[in-house]
């Protein structure tokens, strides 16, 4: 069997992968020089090797890579979300897919708390004031300078997987009331005061002071935070997104923030513009409404899952587990249901 890594693994990382897969596996690791990031690669780096590959593991697949990899039977996708993959093609070709869900749940949960507190305490605007030595009289703080409390507030967590549950645990230590919304409410949830199904979404949004999106993006959840959902939220509420930008319809969110119908937005994920004009050659930007420049918005550039110490190593270890299982002819842990999309 042959496995191809689509990232420029260090010698140490390659050795760690090799140590866990069957001895007779042919493992290819690109050796050329990376362009921007060693976690990405181009066809010139792996193309020749893909033709014979039984399995591929990495964060990216260069355009055309799947066509080249005619023998491909397993893909280990080193992301928690698989929304970028062409599920129909993978299903038709019988390619099994595993992801690394859970590897970065703690890192993302911590990022969610960081964003929630940053918006609640207006950390960025206040930091900017300190830098320029601007000091407003205490009794006349503008709303974007004024902090809010977490204690006693209601947090709605949409998506009660490993990230949602980890946030719930932390939020409870801040004495918040936590309500979960999940596809299977009958599964219940740890550290939550109540669990609802998606049918109750608007009802839950009406009660929440903070709303956290921690759900995979699927056909059902694409753009599900729409005008109705945003209008259901309190004007004093704060929305936090650590899942995918496209879960939210951008224009109604932008308008709500602009008109102070929503008190804040904290996000680690941004919109991905497909079906947009011009269809290509446009430059990537966080948001076409410029939402990131509003004073009540705090954002980071999806650094939660990867750009934390030790996360890359943990991700590779989890992926290697799935890869090794496939190579031994065993069922892969963390397989993706290509119909559900997660």
């Amino acid at each position: 069997m042959k496995a191809v890594l689509t990232f420029f693994a260090t010698d140490e990382e390659a050795a760690r992968v090799r140590a866990k897969i069957p001895k007779d596996t042919e493992l290819f690791v690109p050796k050329s020089r990376p362009n921007l990031s060693r976690l990405e690669c181009a066809m010139k780096d792996v193309g020749d090797q893909l033709a014979g590959a039984d399995a591929v593991m990495g964060w990216v697949m260069p355009p055309g890579g799947f066509d080249r990899a005619k023998k491909l039977k397993a893909l280990v996708w080193l992301h928690a979300g698989c929304d970028e993959l062409d599920y129909r093609m993978l299903k038709e070709r019988g390619i099994k897919v595993a992801n690394i869900r859970g590897a970065n749940a703690i890192s993302v949960a911590e990022q969610a708390m960081a964003l929630m507190l940053a918006v609640a305490k207006r950390i960025v605007v206040n930091h900017q004031s300190v830098q320029i030595a601007h000091w407003e009289p205490q009794d006349r703080l503008r709303p974007e300078h004024k902090g809010m409390m977490l204690e006693g507030k209601t947090l709605a967590i949409i998506g009660l997987g490993s990230i949602g549950a980890a946030v719930a645990k932390r939020a409870r230590a801040f004495d918040m009331r936590v309500i979960g919304v999940r596809r299977h409410p009958e599964k219940g949830g740890e550290h939550v005061d109540a669990v609802h199904g998606f049918a109750d979404l608007l009802k839950v949004l009406r009660q929440a002071d903070f709303v956290l999106l921690a759900t995979p993006i699927t056909e059902e959840t694409f753009g599900f935070i729409d005008e109705d959902a945003i209008r259901a939220m309190k004007p004093t509420a704060v929305l936090i997104n650590v899942a995918r930008g496209n879960l939210i319809q951008e224009m109604p969110l932008y308008e709500a923030l602009k008109e102070n119908r929503l008190a804040g937005f904290g996000t680690d994920v941004w919109w991905n513009y497909t079906n947009s004009l011009p269809p290509t050659y446009h430059y990537p930007i966080p948001s076409r409404t410029g939402i990131q420049r509003l004073p009540t918005v705090v954002g980071a550039g999806n650094r939660a899952g990867v750009a934390a110490e030790g996360t890359i190593g943990r991700v590779i270890d989890l992926g290697t587990e799935s890869l090794a299982a496939f190579l031994r002819g065993q069922p892969m842990p963390r397989m993706i249901d290509l119909d559900l999309g997660y």
């Binding site: 911590e110 507190l117 609640a120 930091h127 980071a300 550039g301």
Partner: peptide, 20 residues
């Protein structure tokens, strides 16, 4: 709560990332 906002703000490098 503010202590935790600052602690997470610096640990996650939120301000510099927001600026970026």
């Amino acid at each position: 709560e503010h202590t935790f906002a600052l602690l997470l703000g610096i640990a996650k490098r939120l301000v510099i990332k927001h600026k970026a």
